[in-house]
Amino acid sequence: MTGQYLAFFIFALMAITGGVFMINLSRVIHMVLSIGLSFFGVAGLFIMLQAEFLAFVQVLIYAGAITIMMAMGTMMTQGGDEGEKPKRRLHNVLSFLSAVLVGAFLLYGIYTTSWPTEPTDLGANNIKEIGVTLFSNFVIPFELASILLLVALVGAIVLAKRDGEKD
């Protein structure tokens, strides 16, 4: 067992357990922490794929900013009653089965494909490449993304602002 294999195993386990806990835990703050774990696992996987820029962005934005923001959001809103979840056995069984089926189908497809085996070096200069493409070929979607963020911000305020009797 090589070190690389071990590292992959640990990171993958982090990503998956984080996701599973996120769905199954009942308190919001626990969910936030487990999704953070999942983000770190994915960042590790990116490093193993030589995509270190994506890995740092993953940690900075997802594991850092988004997790913290969700935690703050949870603290600022009053904690709702965590009442009993309605028990829907059949629903759970069916969703589990369909998830397993989809997963098995994808795995089957991946394992039956004959992948090219010659190694390629995609990792060299990847930060520079991302920068150059982002500010040359993809400058239009890049600018549009700023409008998109503005819209999301305005929308969040419009929908979440508590309207008092007077402004």
Partner: peptide, 20 residues
């Protein structure tokens, strides 16, 4: 990429407008 950004711009604006 452009297509997806356009799609999200339309969708997010519509989500908010639906709940305005």
């Amino acid at each position: 990429i452009t297509l997806y950004i356009g799609l999200e711009l339309l969708s997010i604006s519509s989500y908010i407008l639906a709940g305005i």
